[in-house]
Simulated assay, not measured.
Amino acid sequence: MSQSVINATPEKVAGVAQRNKPGTGERITRALDRSWRPVALLLVCFGAWWAIAAAELVEPYLVPSPGATLDVLTGKTDYLWQHTWVTTYETLLGFLIAVVVGVAAAVIMVYSTTVEKTLYPILLFAQVVPKIAIAPLFVVWLGFGIAPKILIAVLIAFFPVVISMVTGLKAVDPEMLQLSSTMGANSWQTFVKIRFPASLPHLFSGLKVAVTLAVTGAVVGEFVGANEGLGYVILQANGNLDTPMLFAGLLVMSLIGVILFVLVEIAEKFLLPWHASRRDSGVTTAY
């Protein structure tokens, strides 16, 4: 490659076009373009729910009206908030433990073939075992406190973290590893400068799956044995045929999952601005 091409700016290279950074208006337009479809779908679902309840096609004790559910959300805010905080705490703690242990296990598996061949089948077996089937055992062993819920959240969120991290660490270009070795980098420097940064896009894909599964794990633990948390609220409402409270609990639980997913998405945006999926501007080939 000639020196003139190397020193040339992107817009001066044949077949390459430079995209300008989008302004505030363009960013707002893009955000609206991405969000109007899911918002429209939610409005359609809400409209169908309201129409079914208004037409009394289903008994109110089976499907409550949106108004009745909203009354519960606004009238029992303190009650719901108390249990929401418990479930959120269990979810976050279980998710964080799963991330730390999962990333550490993935690194060890990548750097040790013996550990990978030993640990991977066990992880696969643990993943296919239904967590709701073994949840009662955790309650028997650990009691009705917060520990069984956190453990179930960890077990459910752990597998996506491990698999995504292993995939990311192994997806590094071998030529980059050879180059770092040629330049005298040791294993730690290669990991910090090359392997770990290259694995982050895969890791965040797993984290977005894991954080939503952690909510499910915490609620499953509350279903089995608890006296607080949204799982407890839903179970009590189901036993009392209090469907407005049941629907309110389900909506709040879903909202927790959505918020946590968005937070991971925001963290990915700020930590990986260099990744292709996060670029608002850059170079585009014209071929």
Rank of each mutant, 00 (worst) to 15 (best):
104 A>D: 02
28 I>H: 07
255 L>S: 12
282 G>V: 11
24 T>Y: 10
153 A>R: 01
111 Y>M: 09
140 V>I: 08
74 T>K: 13
178 Q>T: 14
103 V>C: 02
81 W>F: 14
55 A>M: 11
222 E>R: 03
245 M>G: 02
232 Y>N: 08
74 T>G: 15
53 A>V: 06
25 G>R: 13
126 A>K: 04
157 A>G: 07
22 P>M: 14
62 L>P: 07
62 L>I: 14
3 Q>H: 15
108 I>L: 09
160 P>C: 07
96 L>A: 05
233 V>M: 06
233 V>G: 04
50 W>T: 13
275 H>F: 09
17 A>T: 07
163 I>L: 08
52 I>W: 11
90 E>V: 06
12 K>S: 12
75 G>D: 10
135 A>N: 03
74 T>H: 14
34 R>Q: 14
9 T>Y: 09
82 Q>R: 06
26 E>S: 13
84 T>E: 03
173 D>F: 06
283 V>W: 11
244 P>G: 08
276 A>P: 00
176 M>T: 08
125 F>Q: 02
129 V>D: 05
78 D>E: 14
222 E>D: 03
183 M>D: 06
14 A>Y: 15
33 D>K: 07
15 G>I: 00
210 A>R: 01
276 A>C: 01
110 V>P: 02
263 L>R: 10
229 G>D: 00
180 S>A: 09
198 A>D: 06
237 A>F: 04
113 T>K: 02
87 T>H: 00
93 L>S: 03
174 P>E: 13
267 A>R: 14
94 G>S: 01
107 V>L: 10
26 E>H: 08
78 D>R: 09
38 P>V: 09
215 V>N: 00
113 T>I: 14
113 T>N: 06
34 R>P: 00
138 F>Q: 01
94 G>H: 02
15 G>Y: 07
245 M>F: 01
174 P>L: 15
126 A>W: 01
169 L>G: 05
230 L>Q: 04
222 E>M: 01
121 P>W: 11
159 F>P: 03
164 S>V: 05
63 V>Q: 05
44 V>T: 06
223 F>Y: 12
259 I>R: 11
42 L>S: 14
217 G>D: 03
115 V>R: 04
265 E>P: 06
11 E>C: 06
138 F>P: 00
33 D>C: 04
112 S>F: 08
19 R>Y: 09
24 T>L: 12
185 A>G: 09
113 T>A: 05
55 A>D: 07
221 G>F: 00
66 P>R: 13
221 G>Y: 00
122 I>K: 02
78 D>F: 08
265 E>D: 15
212 T>C: 01
96 L>T: 06
53 A>M: 08
216 T>V: 14
186 N>F: 02
185 A>N: 11
29 T>G: 15
75 G>S: 09
102 G>R: 02
239 G>W: 03
110 V>Q: 04
272 L>S: 09
83 H>P: 02
3 Q>V: 15
231 G>F: 02
122 I>G: 01
228 E>G: 10
241 L>K: 10
69 T>F: 05
113 T>D: 07
216 T>G: 00
6 I>K: 12
86 V>M: 00
26 E>N: 13
253 M>S: 12
193 K>V: 15
244 P>M: 05
262 V>Y: 13
204 F>T: 03
77 T>P: 00
46 F>K: 12
133 A>R: 04
43 L>T: 04
253 M>R: 00
183 M>C: 09
144 F>P: 07
280 D>V: 02
40 A>L: 11
64 P>F: 01
285 T>F: 12
278 R>N: 10
107 V>Y: 03
